[in-house]
Nucleic acid binder design. Sequence first.
DNA 1: CTGAAAGCGCTAACAA
DNA 2: TTGTTAGCGCTTTCAG
Lengths: 363, 363
Amino acid sequence: MSDHEAAGGRCPAEPGRAMTMKDVAEAAGVGLGTVSRVLTGKGQASAAARERVLEAVRRLDYRPSALGRGLKLRRTDILGLIVADLCDPFYGEFAEGVLSAARTLGKHVIVCAGGEDPATEREYAEVLLQQRVDGVIAFPTGGNVDVWQGARRLGVNVVFVDRVVEALDVPTLVVDNASGSRAATEYLLALGHRRIGYLGGPPGAGQHEEGFRAAFHAAGAAVPEELVVRTRPTRESADAVALRLVRADPAPTALFAATSVLGEAALRAVRAGGLRVPRDVSVLMFDDAPWASLVSPPVTVVSRPARRMGVEAARLVTAAGPGGHPVRVLPYELVVRGSCGPRNPAAAPVETVPAGAAREAEE
Amino acid sequence: MSDHEAAGGRCPAEPGRAMTMKDVAEAAGVGLGTVSRVLTGKGQASAAARERVLEAVRRLDYRPSALGRGLKLRRTDILGLIVADLCDPFYGEFAEGVLSAARTLGKHVIVCAGGEDPATEREYAEVLLQQRVDGVIAFPTGGNVDVWQGARRLGVNVVFVDRVVEALDVPTLVVDNASGSRAATEYLLALGHRRIGYLGGPPGAGQHEEGFRAAFHAAGAAVPEELVVRTRPTRESADAVALRLVRADPAPTALFAATSVLGEAALRAVRAGGLRVPRDVSVLMFDDAPWASLVSPPVTVVSRPARRMGVEAARLVTAAGPGGHPVRVLPYELVVRGSCGPRNPAAAPVETVPAGAAREAEE
DNA sequence: CTGAAAGCGCTAACAA
DNA sequence: TTGTTAGCGCTTTCAG
């Protein structure tokens, strides 16, 4: 009705209405179908017609609309990705892997960062479904069962990463966080540590705590409950909690962090407390962040193949249909570096100043 | 033609055809328009009708299709984001800012990581335009002028970040990298350094090198050309180049890295060479990566407000129309920590083995 | 080989 | 207030 002036668009940079396939057809003097055939490559078209169409496309600077196409094809070539926090190098690398694999698969990725919050997860999942993405890759919080079920009904493939959700029969890609945490904790235990502080994320974010506890139980030792703390995955919150941990009264002799962001916090807290690693306190964390080998001493970590996980997830979600194993387990690796040492009972209350001076200051 | 069996979909988790607004209308016993009015909130509807519609929506687990909506509205509520590398904490934080701002603006973000490559940039930009995103935020490589012009013609808002492209009149958000680099270099120069190694990204990725050179010129000193190197932004490539830099014959007494990923490489190279920071070599880099203050000594950096830049960019691209300043400059900050010290002429060629042994080895 | 036409799911204008 | 209708831009039969 108000489309009359749209015909002769030739201004070089005005937000005039976008060219459509119909415009191209007219400009090329062919039918709509011919244009489509030429552009999609499906179906035949005479060399002459093809040339005229291509010429018109060039002249009009035509770009097909993925909207029209998607509506017709019931396929958007878009993937959804829900991670906790792009600032965490693990998720950064994972996302990079997804993006890179998606690219070779001819897909694009809508990325959502939802910070382990079920309500946010619901919101994002809902939005992705409405976008009719071809698939979504998510680090599930464990909730929102209904939404995830709705996905399958809409024909949207879902792949979960890092956590298995029992209530849902969704293909899942994990590293065995529980085992990794257990192995790490056992390593610390073997070094003689008993007062090991555990710094974890919100409940549901991995199985680290279970592994931590399992190691203690297997060793017949009691879990130091007052040293087991969880925090939201922000640097501020993590710092506060880590500081509390380090200052616990019978101080911990080792710290285990469930993510590298929490590991950072642990290290900062240790420094703030004037403690030395590993002499005063050992530190161990999940994920081999690039900086882990840069600090001194380099941090002993449980390494997960982040990028590869991203690549695999993208492939999995694209290889439609419930084919094969519902949960695939990728290997972790305990990379021993220099941040963990034997517990030293002799070290007593650490004295950073001569004993005499310290007493002097108190008097 | 083959749509006959789609009517009575009630299987709980089959990929049956998605519900449409028409289905809802029928189930609720109202017209299509009424459903739309209720769901969009625009226009009137009796309480009775509204209730029946909502009920039907719930029963059918209906989710509106953003495709149909977008086609009609000529608006997708999707933003495109093109960064170089999500593994670089700067881009990670930037992306986090974009995502977070987009969320409050009711937009979603398709993220593309293109590694500073013009060809890849073109591919991504093209794709985003075809998706008819509402806007795109990009760290431009400088090329692909035609595509970016096409964007405006399609009514797609574009915002550039970090680099101004003279040939294009696009709203741009930058930190003055040239000034920041110059200030940093002057700092090094003031410390007495002359043999400063420059480790940069591909040409076009920021104005760091210009600033580096400007500082030398202003000081009347000659740029040590053999110490100015550029690399692709991958860790492998960066490591190789950094190593070469450190091993240059009259060795550099200071290193300036244009990104934190390059800074990592510099540090690794320094360690590999058995050198100590800042005694043997000073190190300075762009971007206050979280690990910068964690290593010892903590790294002196030029800090840019990554997250805030992301937030601003998202706002800018959403606040349609060419309103206001075409290029907005955000402040950087030189954060002096412990990785830079005065040049020590007395230190002579560093000898990690006794001089005699060295000669011995040569003979 | 090619043009015409139907329809994907939605919104908005119009008529009732 | 509400139902009907006309497209948004594309792919895909189906005739010609």
